[in-house]
Nucleic acid binder design. Structure first.
Lengths: 244, 244
DNA sequence: GATTATGATTTGTGATCACACTTGCTTTGA
DNA sequence: TCAAAGCAAGTGTGATCACAAATCATAATC
């Protein structure tokens, strides 16, 4: 399978060596910005500058501007007519729009995954649930970052089983777009002594374990919808208050 | 609404003048490459070089490399481990994957559009149908380019009515990904004295005119599926021939 | 004669510079 | 006192250069 150029009897050596992997600076910048966006480290409507990010990431402007361009095409960022870029602001319409798309596409992905996940994969996501419980057990410090990360791992572990190289990047794009909004909701959840997210996740796992695609889709929709409807109400009441 | 900086009594002049619009070179390169991709001007598996494209488009490498980066994140192009980029090759799995995603997402878009399209919009897409008929009437020259363009206009005119700023970019990405494949199919159609695409389109228009979302979705699925299943059979028979 | 080594050419990546546009502040003039 | 002009700092865009890695053709070696 490997290139023949490694020589005749170098397979033995090659088996011992891990591929070194040449990640470009641009890739690192891109990943870092993605992480920040999904994690909600940037606020909606916040303006980003190339030189500012380059300084923060300790590189030159070149990798940053290319990474920004990529994020703009994914709609994770927005190019203003002034040619400055910002993270898209939250509006009611956009919230509903994102929710609908996520339920549609992630629902399809989990329905596909339900038919394809074996005990091996189920065990994998149960591990993540266990980690979640562990984290909640010692809840002195509300580690929102960790919550976000675990939630992400849980969902994408499932989506990866759907076997679609087309759907997964779309889902990533949707997470990128809803990341900055969701963070706001999760914060508010944490403060409001929320209903535990784990319940929703457990329901998803049950459906997957019994290969029930329909139930999985429903449970997932419920899980996704929660922060969205929460945020929706918050926005609406804020708008009502502005009116008065 | 306009900037106050235009002065006091310059509104009269401003009304006469069209905004000049400052498109960047990168934007033009990007659009041009998109057009080429959707139109199927590049073959699957074809390798593209930055300097080569820059020469062809008569610019420097800078706008090209950024445009390529954007297309790669949309999965319209593929970055090889060698760091060269190519248009993704066709495989059976990828074909099925793309078809499923397109039926899912474009189906949702047309279902939404069905409830929102008024007589005004219906008339718009009927105009496109008329252009199509006109083109077919004088069919001395099989103008595949024009077929592709009209087909695209027809579909996106509908999708634009769905009112979702999230779904439309995803659909564009899907067209970008399936463009190089579809072109192959359309060529083959033209040669094979095809069943007229217009029939399928007319069925879609009928469903939309009666606001029948379900029928519209079905008709659209049939329209989209045609070139895919055609290509699928072609690929399979080719694979079978290779076996022998 | 097949495989490996060597060198030239090509290609992507990142840094830097020049230029144009934007923005915010100061100054000017009525 | 206030709006318009002018100025300065900041910012995105595109061109160019330096460098490293890849590719390909040729030569050397077993």
């Amino acid at each position: 399978m490997q290139k023949a150029a490694v020589g005749k009897n170098n397979e033995a050596i090659a088996a011992q060596l891990a591929p070194v992997g040449r990640e470009t600076v641009q890739d690192r910048v891109y990943s870092e910005l993605r992480r920040a966006l999904i994690g909600g480290l940037f606020e909606p409507s916040q303006v980003l500058t190339i030189r500012g990010l380059a300084d923060a990431l300790v590189t030159s402007t070149m990798p940053v501007r290319e990474a920004l361009g990529r994020l703009i095409t994914e709609k994770a960022l927005e190019a203003l007519p002034n040619r400055s870029v910002r993270v898209p602001p939250i509006t009611l319409e956009r919230l509903d729009d994102l929710l609908r798309a996520r339920v549609l596409i992630e629902g399809e992905a989990i329905a596909l995954a339900a038919a394809r996940m074996g005990p091996r994969q189920i065990a994998g996501i149960e591990t993540i649930l266990a980690e979640w419980d562990e984290m909640r057990a010692l809840k002195h410090k509300k580690d929102v970052d960790r919550e976000v990360t675990l939630n992400q791992s849980f969902h994408f572990e499932i989506y990866r089983s759907c076997g679609s190289a087309v759907l997964i990047p779309m889902i990533e794009s949707l997470w990128l777009q809803s990341g900055p909004c969701i963070r706001v909701a999760i914060y508010a959840f944490s403060e409001a002594g929320e209903v535990d997210t784990a319940q929703y996740h457990r329901r998803i796992v049950e459906a997957l374990a019994t290969q029930d695609a329909h139930a999985a889709r429903e449970a997932l929709a419920a899980d996704i919808s929660r922060p969205f409807t929460f945020l929706r109400n918050k926005l609406q009441s804020a708008a009502a208050k502005d009116q008065t």
